[in-house]
Amino acid sequence: MIIEKTFNKWILVFLFLIPVLGFIFEEPYYITLTTKVVILGIAGIGLNLALGYCGLISFGHAAFFGLGGYVTGILSFHALNSELMFSWPFVSSGSSDMLVIWPIVILSSAFLALIIGLLSLRTTGVYFIMITLAFAQMLYFFAISWPNYGGEDGLSIYMRNSLPMINTMDPLNFYFICLCWLLTVIFISAKLINSSFGMAFQAIKQNEERVKSVGIETFKVKLLVFVISGTITGLAGSLYTDLNRFISPSVLNWQMSGEIMVFVILGGIARLYGPLVGAAFFIVLEQTLGSYTENWQFWLGLILILEILYVRTGILSLFEKKLKYEK
């Protein structure tokens, strides 16, 4: 009988343990796989802020994930070929330093989220779901047919971007970089959720009218949540490009938005560690089923349906129920 908080601690222990196991068993691939879980977990945590805590069901977070990925890819592509990127307002030929790339990714994702948020937040419910999808689809079709950076073929950067003193090409090093980001993002989210601002956006999910009536400008609150959410997901996109040393429009596709959303729902909506657990569950399932049968998607679908019918609101809720009994 363990409760959610203890379980969360175990997750963290596990995240530190897995690379060690991978090292012992000489299976570096499991490090790569866990890195993927961590990155997609970050993307999910970003979405969860808007979707889980504030009730903003965005079906377009692939836009931020993809933008973060493309900004990283493009900057590094120019640095690699020492090609001029633009000459106005200042001369730039890209960069392959993560310390330069990350701030740019954060700023550009935030900016995109601001624009999409400003235009989308006038709508609610299913309309909001679909308008966010629309913006992501626009970017997707744009990326496919824009020839400069590979179009549908995508963009290879061959080498991971660099950090001073650290060899990022080593799977273990890169894993720890991503893990640091995960911890940072979890820390920030936790602070945010428990702040007065956090109380406001969680209250909006319950009853927006009531929040309005106490004089809070709910539109601004929602916009800010949406921007933070998009920024975190954009950052995950940047790390994903570095993981694969490659970016293509497929991460801008609506299926990507759907997948991030599935991680969130699967793990448990509005639970800090939910998306991480969801991503881990999904990817482990995909890997195990995939090694047994070609028709793994059939079984994956079946398991997901059973999960939703019988476990109800996410894997982590399993541990919450136990808590209630213990009391």
Partner: peptide, 20 residues
């Protein structure tokens, strides 16, 4: 159920039916 549960369940149905 919540809209989100419906999204997940019907998303899973796509996988199941397509692959089936």
């Amino acid at each position: 159920r919540d809209h989100l549960d419906q999204v997940l369940a019907t998303f899973a149905l796509i996988l199941l039916l397509s692959e089936g």
